[in-house]
Simulated assay, not measured.
Amino acid sequence: MTHLIATFFYAGHLRPAPGTWGSLAALIVAYPLLLIGGPLLLVVGVLLAFGLGLWATGIETRSSDDHDPSEIVIDEVAGQWIALLPIAFGAANNNVPLTALWPGWVAAFVFFRLFDIWKPGPVGWADRRGDAMGVMLDDVIAGIFAAIVVVLLAGLYHGVLMQ
């Protein structure tokens, strides 16, 4: 069970770039979650992915020298869903179809992957912890950074460019 969770239903075994595959799987799963329960269900999903991911990652890495094996992608799922939250709430609050905000989906994906790979500041700090919490936290922080960029880009587009 822990391997199923940690690899997000084995998406982490796809090659190359399992983290990118995990993020893509997160996008695919986010869409029906949002259709079924809106942004609040996505928030619940983030909390579950984080909690279950922390537990599963701890067990999967317990007897390993590698604290962050590439096949563990539940952290990417939690982070990617955080990056999508501004889009989810924006669509819901403005009664706009999720598909109408496709540029936001692309930005959330690209910027989350950028921050997850680049690991600036606190993302790198969390990654260097060398434990299950660090595995989860670096992607949570990368997701927060990506969400901030999504909000800034939406503000730029809707507030400045569309004036």
Rank of each mutant, 00 (worst) to 15 (best):
A6V: 01
A6W: 01
A6E: 00
F8Y: 14
F8A: 08
F9T: 03
Y10Q: 14
A11I: 01
A11S: 15
A11R: 00
G12I: 01
G12V: 03
H13S: 04
A17I: 02
A17N: 09
P18L: 01
G19Y: 05
T20G: 06
T20N: 04
T20E: 06
T20Q: 06
S23Q: 04
L24R: 07
A25W: 13
L27G: 05
V29P: 06
V29M: 13
Y31V: 14
L33Y: 07
L34I: 12
I36P: 11
I36A: 14
G37W: 13
G38F: 08
G38A: 04
L40F: 15
L40E: 15
L41M: 14
V43C: 14
V44E: 14
G45A: 09
G45H: 09
G45I: 03
V46S: 10
V46Y: 13
V46T: 09
G51S: 14
L52Q: 03
L52A: 11
G53T: 05
L54T: 00
W55F: 14
W55C: 00
A56C: 01
T57C: 10
G58M: 03
I59G: 00
E60I: 00
T61K: 04
S64Y: 02
S64D: 10
D66K: 10
P69T: 03
S70Y: 04
I72C: 04
I72W: 05
I74G: 02
I74E: 02
V77S: 08
G79V: 10
Q80W: 09
Q80C: 05
W81V: 05
W81D: 06
L85C: 08
P86V: 13
I87C: 12
I87F: 08
I87S: 11
I87V: 15
A88K: 13
F89E: 13
A91L: 09
A91I: 07
